[in-house]
Computed example of a mutant assay.
Amino acid sequence: MKNTLLVSLSLIVLGLCINGCNSSKKMLQRGNYYQAVMSSIEKLRTSPNNDKARNTLSQAYPLAVGTLMDKIDSEKASRSDFQFTQMVYIFQDLNAMYESIQRAPAAKEVVPNAKKYYSQLANIKPKAAQEQYLAGTAQLNLGTRESAKQAYFSFLEADKFVPGFKDVNKKIEKAYNLAILKVVARLKPIKSRRYNLSANIFYDEVRKVLREIEKDEFIRFLTPKQAKKRKLNKPDQYLVINFEDFIVGETHTQERIEKLEKDSVLLSTITLDDGKKRDVLGTVKAELNVKRMEVISKGIINLTITHGGFDKRVLMKQDFGGQYVWYNEWGHFNGDERALNDEQLAICNAQRIAPLPPQQMFIEFTRPIHAKLRNRLIRFYKRY
């Protein structure tokens, strides 16, 4: 058994190695020289004597270097707005191959004279930072939120190439502040002390949704108090949520009588003259009296989003309704018990019970509202 397991594991490892080598070779054949190099090196780390990986690496490495250097020449000739940025990425790929080879002794045997391009990369980075800085400045000067977003990313690139390049940190902060959609969110309290705690539980769930939306780094929701503290007199949007109307504990009682019959019920067993026994089947009847109490709680919540400019135009206005029905059934029957099914018997065995506390029913009717409100808010802010 042990030997069988070892053989199986060996075959699995061999299969993975063959597949890995085949994939590296396919990359080479398709002209993906860089990927072929990196894949071959990875295989040689775990299988230093893998002839296929060695062969692929020996072929792919000079082709990868040649292809990447050709791209460098093309970028120099193109004089595009981001030629130095592209050259940075290319030199980083060249150095990534060099570093991977240095960390794999078997790969060093195959490519003993791998080339490094640290000095070239160091010379190019300030030029790449400059072009990203200029691009960011041009976008920032346009003065729109979308252009500020582009500027923010350009300044981050500039800072990545040369940390602290010129006044890039100030530029990053300025672009970020202009790019953020600042929304003052007002969750109106309800005019009821009895349900104030329940409403706050609902609003806590709404705040979680707003935090979820804020995972987009360019949207921020502030309370009116926070906006006042930050002296934010002109936010981009106002978001208001309030309970338009609600009813808790609307009670209805109903009573119904059902005539029940069930056929082919065993009534008795008789003995025939010949001594054999025979079942006597027949119909049984009963009258079921069921009482039902329903307590209905429902409400409507309004969501309004308006533009923060002078026009205060309405961007979205929608009502969301929800309902929760608590009920209890109990009853009794007259007649043959066998005419009742299990559910009907359970009703007869049930006792009248008190409904949920009003505060809990308030929470229950807001659950479907929360689900609909969450989906609507996420869809709306995706566009920003």
Rank of each mutant, 00 (worst) to 15 (best):
A128D: 10
L134M: 11
E131W: 07
T144Q: 12
P126S: 08
T137Q: 14
N95R: 01
P105G: 04
S154V: 01
K116R: 13
A138K: 15
E131N: 05
A104M: 02
N123Q: 15
A122K: 11
A129G: 10
A107P: 02
Q120L: 04
A135H: 12
D93I: 00
F155V: 01
E131A: 06
P105V: 01
S119K: 13
E99D: 13
A129C: 09
Q139V: 00
A107D: 09
S147T: 14
K108W: 05
L156E: 07
V88E: 01
R145F: 06
T144I: 11
S119R: 13
A107H: 02
N123S: 14
G136T: 09
Q132W: 09
S154K: 08
N113H: 09
Y117K: 12
D93V: 00
A122T: 08
A151V: 06
R103S: 13
Q139C: 10
K115L: 09
D93A: 06
P112D: 02
L94T: 00
Q102M: 07
E109V: 08
Y133W: 08
I101Y: 11
E109N: 07
A128G: 13
Y117W: 15
K115C: 00
Q130D: 13
Q130L: 13
A135R: 11
T85E: 14
E99K: 06
K108S: 14
A135K: 12
V110H: 09
A104T: 15
E99H: 05
V88T: 03
L140D: 10
P105E: 00
L140A: 11
E131L: 06
L140N: 13
F153L: 10
Q139S: 14
K125E: 11
R145G: 10
Q139H: 14
K125R: 12
L156G: 01
Y98P: 03
I90P: 04
I124Q: 05
Y118H: 09
T137E: 14
L121F: 05
E109W: 02
L142G: 03
R145P: 06
Y89G: 04
A107N: 03
K127N: 08
L140K: 12
V111M: 08
T144P: 14
I90N: 01
E131P: 09
T85A: 12
Y118V: 06
L156N: 09
I101G: 05
S154P: 04
G136I: 10
S119N: 12
Y117P: 14
Y118Q: 11
V88N: 04
A114I: 05
V110N: 08
A135T: 11
Y89P: 00
N95C: 02
F155C: 01
N113C: 01
A135S: 15
K125Q: 13
N141T: 05
T85I: 07
K116W: 03
S147N: 15
E131T: 05
E146G: 10
F91C: 00
M97A: 09
L156F: 00
Y98A: 14
A148I: 03
Q150H: 08
A107W: 06
R145Y: 07
L142K: 15
Q86K: 07
V88H: 02
F155T: 01
R103F: 04
E146S: 15
Q130S: 09
L142P: 03
S100T: 01
Q150M: 08
A128Q: 07
Y152W: 10
R145T: 13
M87F: 03
A148Y: 07
A128R: 04
Q92M: 10
D93P: 01
S119L: 14
